[in-house]
Design a protein around this nucleic acid. Structure first.
Lengths: 143, 143
DNA sequence: GACTTACTTTAGACTTATTCTAAATAGAAG
DNA sequence: CTTCTATTTAGAATAAGTCTAAAGTAAGTC
């Protein structure tokens, strides 16, 4: 079993392209936030994004952090992940269908490739299923 | 496919027994709340419990609703369910292991018997899995 | 270059769900 | 009865996120 691989970093120009392509103005704040959440961040919360922004950008307000994250989600460039162990939303740059493993020992979230999971159910006979979420909770197995 | 069956109603005496057995004083407020959440309620939120209590009991404060729900969860008589479509906690009197189907058309939550689902994954090879959550989202299929 | 216009950002107020606090109350035990 | 401990209460506090209204920015036009 191997976790899904992370996104590669993007140049500022590439990020601008992506924003423009999705119909959003590539403002300085948006580009900065994108650099983090679309490439470097590992399931950050809005709070984590704000801390990163405060350390790496002259000025980004909390409202802009939330506005930008919501914009990216609306444009399909980012996914919201809500898990029961916390009530903070986490943002996932992996927009392909996948599941999650939450490591309670380290508080880390790992993407699980759907290929690693076989799920069959007759629930689909009675219902129109639009989404299936699977989250594994546990700890890294000791070697 | 059939949803898991609901709990049967309990007499007040039976509820008192259950509370005492779990080491909690069977106060009037607790018994009243238990009557609802352990028998009649269908995945209510704290807010729904409060509304029910206001209509069926002389006086229960919001704090007592939360205290009692948290007590029942701590005693293992009730399960918390947190789902991504809302940030309100839902309470489930079905404490056996099970999954959920969330019907977005009706906002109803249905328990799914694990027997209805076959899940295999090599995620368990690398991790010690303590809990697997599966939530189906969708609508009731039209006949 | 200044002007308009539409979009973006900002600080801070607001909302919502839940928890906390400190005082009042209820019951059991003596 | 009085005392003691657990419980309940009203309302304040907290935490995450949203809203508001004013100020800033930038592109297109003259």
């Amino acid at each position: 079993m191997h976790p899904m691989k992370r996104k590669e970093s993007m140049t500022v120009d590439k990020i601008k392209q992506v924003l423009v392509a999705s119909g959003a103005k590539p403002t300085a704040q948006r580009v900065a936030i994108c650099k983090y959440v679309l490439c470097d961040g590992d399931h950050p919360t809005a709070e984590v994004v704000k801390v990163w922004a405060d350390q790496n950008f002259p000025m980004v307000s909390r409202a802009t952090v939330y506005n930008t994250l919501n914009l990216l989600v609306a444009k399909g460039l980012l996914k919201e992940v809500k898990l029961p162990h916390t009530n903070k939303v986490m943002y996932d740059c992996n927009i392909d269908h996948h599941y999650h493993f939450y490591n309670s020992a380290t508080d880390a979230l790992v993407d699980i490739d759907p290929k690693e999971v076989v799920m069959k159910s007759n629930v689909t006979e009675k219902y129109d299923i639009s989404k299936i979420e699977i989250t594994f909770h546990g700890k890294q197995r000791k070697k």
